[in-house]
Structures are given as structure tokens and as C-alpha cells.
């Protein structure tokens, strides 16, 4: 059992937990993920590690409530226990000193970008952070990202905070002003359409772009192949070969197609939950 030590609510649908998991905290690196299971009936939910404290033995996760399981997770409080918590899984992000690195974060993707930006900065890079959300209410971790990056640019799609525009708009400005030849690497993490848009743009500039994919998964250890995607000419397993991939090689339409595989079941699970909640948990 894994204790939730702290809970923070960033918006009605975005929440942060600090979880006591010393084994994971001891060995995890930027870019890796965990899988958690709430209870006996729970599914295995993969979430990228947003922060860690090796001394305190804690892992921080930030998640958006999108379906039955994440809504259920979001209803848990500090002091509650999560049944299963396993990690670190996946390969860490490859960190090296390249000079300048741009880290682009969209929506809840701000959380996984955070430790990666910090690691690149610690490795001696000038890290330019670009973070954007749909609207001000969904914004979080501006302070943490500010500390993790050398400079930070913030935007909102609707202009309710700082400036109006997509992260791609900001990214374009930065590339144009710095010169594409001065930017060896871009990291982009966020919703799939955002990562895809970033990659479409950076491909034209010819700037290497790494994305972190969150495919559907079951075991997360390379055993089932549920998370397989085409990267270049090869089939890769996101759980063990990734989650980081060269965004210009990813077959985005295939990924999008596989992502909605269980859409009708997800709807059913939500309806079932609402039904059992209304009936006081009885079946």
C-alpha cells in the first residue's frame, strides 16, 4: 500500500499527489513513468513522474480526470492509500549538454516536462521553457517551471493569462528569434494533437524533437504489446522502448486511432460508476 502524503487541487479536473514510494524515488530518472492501481478492481494507470524527492522517498504525480479511474483517483485524499504503485518504468530521457534546449509543455504535460527541463538545466543547458494551457484556470506549476528552466514563456489559448496563443505560436517566435541553427533539441509533451502540431512545425525547421507518448498500456513491462506504435519502419513498445521517441518518426494517425480503442467501454465504465454511486455503491 502506498500512502498519499499530500494532495493539491489545481483545477476541478487537475490534481497533484505526493506519494510515499521510496523504492521508485530512489532510482527514478527524468522521463520515466509509474503505473498505479487504486484498488482490487482497478485498472493499471500509467502516469509520468512529475517530480521526486529521493531523501523523503516521494514521487509526485499530476493527473487530469478524464475517465472513471482518474475521477476515482481524484476523489482520494491525503492519508488515503493506493493499492499498487510500480516504477520507475520506461527508459529515462537522454540528457546531455547540447547548449540550448527548448521544452514545450501543453496542459497537464507541464508536469512530465518539469523534471526533464530541470535535468537539462542541471546538465549545463540553457533551457527555454514554453508552457501553455487552454485557459488560466488550468495553469499550474509556473513557479516550479520557472525554477527548472533558464527562461520561461507562458501562454493561454484563450488569452486569459499572460498572452493569447498556442504553444506552437510561441515556439515559432522563439525559433525565429534565436535562429533554428542555434536550437539542437526540442522536447514536447502534452496532448497528442499539440505534440503532433509541434512536430509538424519543427520538421520544417529540421530541429530534432523528442516527444513523450502516453499510449494505452496494461502491464507496462513489455509483456503485452498493447502500447505498440509505429516509429519509422519499426513497431515499438512505448512502455519499454519509450516513452520518449523522435516525434518526426512517430506515426501519429496510428497512435490517435489506437488511443480511442476503448472509447465506448470508457463511457460504459463512467455510466456504471455514476449508477453505483447513486445507489450508494450497491450493484
Amino acid at each position: 500500500m502506498f500512502k498519499i502524503l499530500e494532495k493539491q487541487v489545481f483545477s476541478p479536473v487537475i490534481k497533484q499527489f505526493v506519494i510515499h514510494a521510496p523504492r521508485v524515488a530512489k532510482s527514478c530518472k527524468a522521463g520515466q513513468f509509474i503505473i498505479l492501481g487504486i484498488n482490487e478492481e482497478g485498472e493499471r494507470i500509467p502516469l509520468t513522474i512529475a517530480d521526486f524527492d529521493r531523501e523523503k522517498g516521494t514521487i509526485t504525480i499530476v493527473f487530469q480526470e478524464v475517465g472513471k479511474s482518474t475521477i476515482q483517483l481524484g476523489a482520494m485524499e491525503a492519508g488515503d492509500y493506493i493499492k499498487d504503485f510500480v516504477g520507475p518504468l520506461g527508459e529515462p530521457t537522454h540528457i546531455e549538454n547540447l547548449g540550448t534546449v527548448i521544452c514545450v509543455a501543453g496542459g497537464v504535460g507541464i508536469a512530465p516536462v518539469h523534471p526533464i527541463a530541470r535535468a537539462f538545466k542541471e546538465a549545463g543547458n540553457h533551457v527555454i521553457g514554453i508552457m501553455g494551457t487552454r485557459t488560466q484556470d488550468l495553469m499550474f506549476w509556473e513557479d516550479k517551471m520557472g525554477a527548472a528552466c533558464s527562461e520561461l514563456l507562458v501562454t493561454t489559448d484563450d488569452g486569459s493569462y499572460v498572452r493569447q496563443g498556442f504553444v506552437t505560436d510561441v515556439l515559432k517566435d522563439v525559433i525565429e528569434s534565436k535562429g533554428k541553427e542555434n536550437i539542437p533539441l526540442i522536447i514536447a509533451i502534452g496532448p497528442q494533437p499539440m505534440m503532433r502540431a509541434v512536430c509538424n512545425m519543427t520538421k520544417e525547421y529540421g530541429i530534432k524533437t523528442i516527444v513523450s507518448l502516453n499510449a494505452l498500456m496494461v502491464d507496462g513491462t513489455g509483456m503485452c504489446g498493447c502500447c505498440r506504435i509505429s516509429v519509422g519502419d519499426e513497431t515499438k513498445f512505448v512502455c519499454v522502448d519509450g516513452p520518449d521517441f523522435d516525434g518526426h518518426q512517430v506515426n501519429w494517425s496510428e497512435l490517435a486511432m489506437r488511443q480511442v480503442y476503448f472509447k465506448s467501454e470508457e463511457q460504459l465504465a463512467l455510466e456504471y460508476k455514476e449508477c453505483t454511486c447513486r445507489n450508494g455503491g450497491a450493484e
Partner: peptide, 29 residues
């Protein structure tokens, strides 16, 4: 990689380990 193609491991893991045959009482579909 089309939707509807499973490895036997995935098909059986979902059903046996995650008890998908009891969905939606169990969460894994």
C-alpha cells in the same frame, strides 16, 4: 497495429489478471 489486434499476452492478461470478463465491475475493458 490495427484496432482489434491483440497479442495473446494482452488478450489473456486483460481477461485473467485484470478480470476484464467482469467489466465494468472491474475497470479493465
Amino acid at each position: 497495429n490495427a484496432c482489434g489486434v491483440y497479442s495473446a499476452n494482452e488478450f489473456l492478461t486483460r481477461t485473467n489478471l485484470m478480470k476484464a470478463y467482469l467489466f465494468p465491475k472491474y475497470d479493465t475493458p
